[in-house]
Design a protein around this nucleic acid. Structure first.
Lengths: 140, 140
DNA sequence: GTAATTGCAAAAATTTTGCCTCATA
DNA sequence: TATGAGGCAAAATTTTTGCAATTAC
């Protein structure tokens, strides 16, 4: 685990494997459920602690959106997402959109570190069951 | 309150005024604190219920990021933000960046409704107190 | 060996809900 | 005055933390 003082435990290895294999940005509880299949005695506290540690060490990414649950991502390069406004599902964009930041002012005095794009849309699953729950706006 | 069956109460008016006047996308609790200054008997439950109702009716916007607290925005047009990776502060971008979505694939089969850009950076306040807490990565 | 990490359980923080009263339309 | 909304408090959800036992280095 590169960082001095950090140990690579079973739990961390499994978390990384499960998050890396997940395409849809699981919440902490979803990671817990996945990990628990392989390590039945793992605790949710361990999941939370490790998601925090792993994202501090850039091994995973903590995503900033979601309804009220935080979500995590095994792909640590800065990249863009598309999110379903109905069900909250999140997918990666295959290709980064090009963004032109010229002419957007002084950005409120911020020092810019990076950017990404959020697309909003209706995912295939929700589109399939259309007209159900119609008109209920998602958050975006 | 345009929608049939919806009443414009003191509480809603004050919430709208306070959110409209806020430049930095308050959390529910921050809205509560602001509103409580003017309506001391208001309850946090009322704040949550109304933030939900008001965003369903497009009078405010529910933002999808934040640490673990949801944030709200009085500016309902789809627009882009910049967020401080140190303290979580969020500001609006003065001008929308141009985004080129051509060549980004089929977007995992989603029907696209819109997009926005998230800039990540260090806000002026955090830049001022630099080197404090250095190296602690924000989430993005 | 020893410092980091775990599981467990309790606590804290955030959000939602039930219920009865009050106020808006 | 009828129905939507508020206040309050309890519950549900999500996240964090203390601690003794365990494990990786």
């Amino acid at each position: 685990m590169s960082e001095p003082g950090l140990k690579m435990t079973k739990q961390r290895r499994v978390i990384l494997e499960e998050i890396g294999g997940a395409r849809n940005h699981p919440s902490a509880y979803e990671v817990y459920e996945k990990v628990r299949r392989r390590l039945p005695r793992v605790s949710l506290g361990t999941i939370y602690r490790n998601l925090e540690v792993l994202s501090e060490n850039k091994l995973i990414r903590k995503l900033e959106f979601s309804g009220s649950q935080r979500r995590y991502d095994g792909f640590t390069e800065l990249h863009s997402h598309i999110r379903c406004v109905r069900c909250g599902r999140v997918d990666d964009l295959e290709t980064e959109p090009r963004v032109d930041l010229t002419g957007t002012g002084n950005h409120a005095g911020y020092k810019i570190l990076g950017h990404k794009v959020e697309l909003m849309g209706i995912c295939p699953d929700c589109a399939a069951q259309k007209e159900t729950n119609a008109g209920k706006p998602g958050e975006y």
